[in-house]
């Protein structure tokens, strides 16, 4: 029978896809219209403040705080994960206790605590215990609001990053490290070259979540008067009372940055999918184009045309 063209085989009809699409579109249109027409949104105010210097300064602080906290947090997280997975029971216990403590205390509480460290330790002294002090400084001078923000967020971030990295390492088949050991490779080389690149496949998606969480988490530093994005818009609306449009300004910026981060995450994930069973899946752009082609909403390419 080979070579004989039989009847054309079609997919079953999927009316629900179309119905749900129409309902969703209607809802989105209604939402957009209601937001656009609501005078309380004061879109002209939003436009006015969206790119003012004060808001952009706040955005800049939010961005660098996120970057610094993420970088330091992951450095610490690698250490935490390595300690937790080591054979040394002391290191295991220390990292467990660290994760237990810093995951348990809310970030907001930590921020307030670091900001008020002067009550607990008025002076911070560097020297020989029981001996002469080499350096001494007032806690309030040493730990500014910004330092408190970096400290509080980083300590929290390291605990979470450590758990993400540990989970990623555990997801790599134990035979991989064994193969490296049998070849005489050093532990650090096995980690860097064999285990970590494979662990990245599960570390990256969780890290994307954590990074976006950190971006939004930085808004908490506004309570200790660090001038981030939220603090900047609050500063404006405390003066002008235009609360809703200014919160909208912050929202739009958070949405934009999160979108950029999500797109980056997608392509980083593709990079670490090298050599995986499923190969590379098409990007959303490619998928959308294919779906539309199938639905014949756009002209299909010459070869596939009936």
């Amino acid at each position: 029978m080979s070579g004989v063209a039989g009847p054309v085989l079609l997919d079953r009809r999927r009316p629900l896809t179309w119905v749900s699409g129409l309902v969703a579109t209607a809802l989105v249109v209604a939402l957009v219209l209601s937001l656009a027409r609501n005078p309380a949104m004061e879109w002209d105010v939003v436009a006015e403040y969206l790119t003012t210097a004060q808001v952009l300064d706040g955005l800049w602080l939010t961005l660098w705080l996120t970057a610094v906290v993420t970088a330091l947090g992951f450095l610490g997280g690698i250490g935490i994960a390595a300690m937790r997975l080591s054979r040394n029971p002391v290191l295991q216990a220390v990292s467990w206790a660290y994760v237990w403590f810093f995951r348990s205390v809310p970030v907001l509480v930590q921020l307030l605590f670091w900001f008020n460290i002067g009550y607990l330790y008025p002076k911070i002294t560097l020297g020989i215990p029981g001996g002469p002090a080499l350096l001494e400084a007032s806690s309030n001078d040493l730990i500014s609001a910004t330092t408190a923000a970096v400290l509080g967020l980083t300590l929290h971030e390291a605990a979470h990053a450590g758990e993400i990295i540990r989970g990623g390492i555990l997801a790599v088949d134990g035979g991989q490290a064994e193969a490296g050991t049998a070849l005489g490779m050093s532990g650090s080389r096995i980690f860097r070259r064999i285990v970590l690149p494979q662990a990245m496949r599960s570390i990256v998606p969780a890290t994307g979540n954590l990074l976006i969480g950190t971006l939004k988490g930085t808004s908490m530093v506004s309570v200790i008067a660090v001038g981030d994005l939220l603090y900047s818009v609050q500063f404006v609306y405390n003066r002008t009372y235009q609360v809703v449009p200014l919160l909208l300004v912050a929202t739009l910026w958070y949405l934009l940055v999160t979108t950029v981060l999500s797109v980056c995450q997608y392509y980083v994930e593709r990079h670490f999918a090298r050599g995986s069973r499923n190969g590379l899946t098409p990007t959303p752009v490619q998928r959308a184009r294919r779906a539309l082609t199938r639905a014949r909403l756009v002209p299909s390419l010459g070869k596939e045309a009936p």
């Binding site: 064994e178 193969a179 049998a182 070849l183 005489g184 070259r193 494979q198 670490f272």
Partner: peptide
């Protein structure tokens, strides 16, 4: 140093999946 002189072949191969065949062989 001693382990490097002892070759081992595993039941489940344990090749490094993110490296090419050549990279697997030249790594060690």
């Amino acid at each position: 140093r001693q382990q490097a002189d002892i070759g081992m072949v595993f039941q489940s191969f344990n090749l490094f999946p993110h490296l090419t065949v050549l990279q697997n062989v030249i790594e060690a």
